[in-house]
Amino acid sequence: MIAAFYLISVVLIVSAVLAVSLRNLIYCTLCASVVFISSAALFFLLKADFIGVVQILIYVGAVATLLLFAVMLTKNLVSRQYYVGQKRKWSYGIFTASAVLWVLIGSIRSQTNLAELVTADHQLSVVSLGKEMLTAFLLPFEVASLLLTAAMIGGIVIALEEKKKSS
């Protein structure tokens, strides 16, 4: 169990770094889907089966395919526009990211009472999850469904609108 956690988190971090730093966009999306899968594995490790499965279903099944489609439709496959001044940009990026990281790690370390929190061996059954989703969390559920329909209609309108004007 312990080895599994460290192995998966190493894979997670390495593929995340690759996902953002590779030049060929196809490999980027591939590494992004490895990130999604390994975070789903972490969810399974944390005994949140339902969320792990939903993560795989939505992220790897749909989001990765969408990203691939987007990469296919836009021509610049290998982003070559690294002009000379690029180095400075990277250093800015690294600086801000590490600043944020330092702040987060600082906040984690300052929390003293985290250590004795032990994992409760309670496994939420999917049935109770479903019940709770439709009773206690009905409002977020309805808002999420509203948002999904809005996003679907928005996506289509953006794609379609272009066709009307150009034809």
């Binding site: 591939l30 339902f50 939903v54 795989i56 279903l57 790897v60 099944g61 395919t65 999917v126």
Partner: peptide, 22 residues
Amino acid sequence: DLQVGLLLFFAITSTGTLSIFL
């Protein structure tokens, strides 16, 4: 014997689409 067996089944088969495309 997972508690989320069927959902995992559909999740795994949906990843096949990605590799066909790649």
